[in-house]
């Protein structure tokens, strides 16, 4: 049985490579039961989205002083 620690690692890796069949199903099964890891999954996707929007220096102009 994989732990949340393991699953979070696989969720992160799934952003960088296709998971193997076994990994994929281990993750899906775990996510059915674990809302914490489900949130983690959504949030790493958000990190990617945020990173794409992030533009250093230009954002500095928007910062409150």
């Amino acid at each position: 049985m994989k732990t949340c620690k393991d699953i979070s690692g696989l969720l992160s890796e799934s952003m960088d490579r296709p998971l193997k069949w076994r990994e994929h199903w281990a993750v899906r099964l775990h996510l059915l039961m674990c809302r914490h890891c489900s949130r983690f999954q959504q949030q790493v996707h958000f990190l990617r989205k945020a990173a794409k929007h992030y533009y250093p220096n230009e954002n500095d102009k928007n910062l409150p002083s």
Binding site: T3, C4, K5, D6, H36, R39, F46, K49
Partner: peptide
């Protein structure tokens, strides 16, 4: 291997962008 501070629900994250 359990979360200590489990991820909480983020309210409308896209709004943050």
């Amino acid at each position: 291997g359990h979360w200590i501070g489990a991820p909480s629900a983020w309210n409308n994250p896209d709004h943050a962008l």
